[in-house]
Design a protein around this nucleic acid. Structure first.
Lengths: 363, 363
DNA sequence: ACGACGAATTCACACGTGTGCATAAATAGC
DNA sequence: GCTATTTATGCACACGTGTGAATTCGTCGT
């Protein structure tokens, strides 16, 4: 009788039943601010204010509350907090691919997030089949504070999924420039700097006739590295010759074939080649050697990326090592700045690469 | 006057002020179930029931609600839902390292999560400095539904952070076995199967005196591959000779030195070597060649991992290719089974590797 | 026509945290 | 000792979703 009429027992019972039977609940219940409040003898508001460093709390109660939090091993529920703040203290990384290049970038991002106490959600899509997948959905679903987008494809125009992010004012920073018309917040490898370093190295070791194996022209790096190559030749007052450039699409075999063609060039073969990545550099070296040329005596080759394989290849490959791990950290830092002030002017950071001279070029 | 007395306006005003001034809110407001309810003319409960396929809803209202959801482009707020369900429709991957091996595993996991519509939180720790970081914290903070743990270190006893997960009944699946005393849910490379395949290959091509360069004995793979090696010799009725085994700790240089020592073994040098990874296989091959031996004519070498470099090395390295991408998918599947029934018996899955015969061993 | 029953919907509460406003307590001023 | 002011806390509502229990609505049988 008492049970049925009491206004308190009914809801309470319902809670208990819920806790016992619900298919959702499986974890041991964690203490909440209410538990702490009860223990100390205040309301949960007060506890909340202590957690959020509200100055309007007396030192005495503050101490008591902090002590109680320690004792109960309290940790705020970031999901509940996220519901109120519309943020979850997490970032998202969206990458259209997971290849060896991305790994050090992810490492940089992940380490920085950990240092800052942020979570990191990883979303890998697939650029071929899902290029226009909604990115905003991710943010809406998990309410991440900001998004890092690893951009590989060269876009002339802003794709729809990016426009959607902008429309919803979602803080976001790109890894790799965007090219096309639009300037966006980004942290990237400074391809101009890197390529100039490589070409200068070749020029300094006496080469005048330098060719290039380009990467795919659908990719940002492919486009940038080629234009940087032409720019470098110009700066160094060397001639650019179309007939000793080829496109290997970043692949070993395609570079191999292009290199063979170039080495038979009627206008005379180059004495040095710059390749847009290490894989193609290795393909080029193999082509040269298969045609009876000695590397680097007859022809020097420089790559880009500093893959592990570049070190083990025979001859080992001279290459450019981009600071991939740094990129991640710098990108998160920029994202924090964007979040703090979303209307700040667009910021572009280009990081310098290191030239590693090995056997495939004359030192 | 009306404004001040009306019981409705005050809270309403406060909401508006809140929305305008709060430092948290930055996103365009998304439609909620309440918006849909208002549009259709029902309460939010009804909408919620439609979303959750509650049968007690008439077909007519259900249709109206679904239509309204489409029109408003409604998407459930997973954070709010997570608060109620104590789950956020996301998994966490905890890995003590981000190295090239982990990448395909991550890819497998990420793809599977995407296919299932789950989010993936990535937490990389650092086994040297933070081995005992709390894992449970992660789950508590973001309320992930389950945890995948990439396990590299060989533990004799269950470490504290894992015990904590168990204590809180957090569904979790390991990648790589746990060894030691404790059996845990795991999806792993079947090292026994793989190593036996490699040793059999060497035996089948006429080798009787086979040595090994071990990996670090602090790692699960290091320990397992060595014991699998001894087991394989036994099964094939070949002799195990301590003097032609060395430990390279998974490093190129250490393997190089050990190999040189082994090749001078007073009990006679081996005609074939099995190395616990490709890096060490390359080190061993280099050592043999530096001592004037021909690979594979004088000595065959087999590695493990199928690194990209193994293909480009001269001679290219015969190796075992573990199905790393599969591991991720299988692990998520297992995790789902564990979530569905947390008290099910421990399940261990070992996946088979593929032997790839290249120049470093006689085919 | 009336009650009974089942189906459809609403009500009221919950999840854990944050915060504007009101109020209580403490302090200052005279 | 009384009011005016500051300081510390409580109250009530909010965030968006889920759900047991209560209520309303229709339908059927008598």
């Amino acid at each position: 009788m008492l049970f049925e009429s009491s206004p308190l027992t009914k809801p309470l019972l319902s809670v208990i039943m819920h806790t016992l039977t619900s298919k959702w609940v499986y974890m041991r219940k964690r203490p909440t601010i209410k538990d702490i409040a009860k223990k100390v003898g205040v309301t949960h508001s007060t506890v909340s204010r202590v957690i959020n460093d509200n100055p309007a709390i007396s030192g005495r109660t503050k101490d008591k509350i902090l002590k109680a939090m320690k004792e109960l091993d309290y940790q705020p529920n970031l999901v509940a907090r996220g519901l109120v703040r519309r943020k979850t203290h997490a970032f998202a990384l969206i990458t259209p691919d997971l290849n060896p290049h991305v790994l050090p970038i992810i490492k940089g991002i992940s380490d920085t997030c950990r240092r800052l106490g942020y979570g990191l959600m990883l979303f890998s899509t697939d650029y071929w089949t899902e290029e226009n997948r909604s990115y905003a959905e991710v943010v809406r679903n998990w309410l991440v504070d900001g998004v890092l987008i690893y951009n590989v494809i060269y876009h002339e125009d802003v794709p729809d999924n990016i426009k959607e992010l902008e429309k919803e004012n979602i803080p976001c920073v790109f890894i790799n420039k965007f090219l096309g018309r639009k300037k966006v917040n980004n942290v990237s490898i400074d391809n101009n700097e890197a390529v100039f370093k490589a070409v200068s190295h070749l020029a300094a070791t006496g080469h005048k006739r330098i060719g290039m194996i380009k990467g795919g022209m659908l990719s940002v790096d492919g486009v940038e590295r080629f234009s940087a190559f032409r720019g470098s030749l110009e700066k160094l007052e060397l001639e650019f010759d179309e007939s000793i450039t080829g496109c290997g699409n970043f692949f070993f075999n395609e570079a191999y074939e292009e290199m063979k063609r170039i080495l038979c060039s009627p206008s005379g073969r180059p004495t040095a080649m710059f390749c847009a990545n290490d894989i193609m550099a290795m393909g080029s070296v193999k082509a040269a050697m298969d045609m009876g040329l000695k590397v680097p005596q007859d022809i020097s080759v420089v790559g880009f990326d500093d893959l592990e394989a570049a070190r083990f290849f025979k001859p080992s490959i001279t290459t450019l090592k981009p600071p991939l791990e740094d990129i991640g950290g710098r990108a998160i830092e920029m994202l924090l700045r964007v979040i703090e002030n979303p209307s700040r002017p667009v910021e572009e950071i280009g990081l310098a690469s290191r030239l590693i001279v090995r056997e495939s070029s004359v030192a």
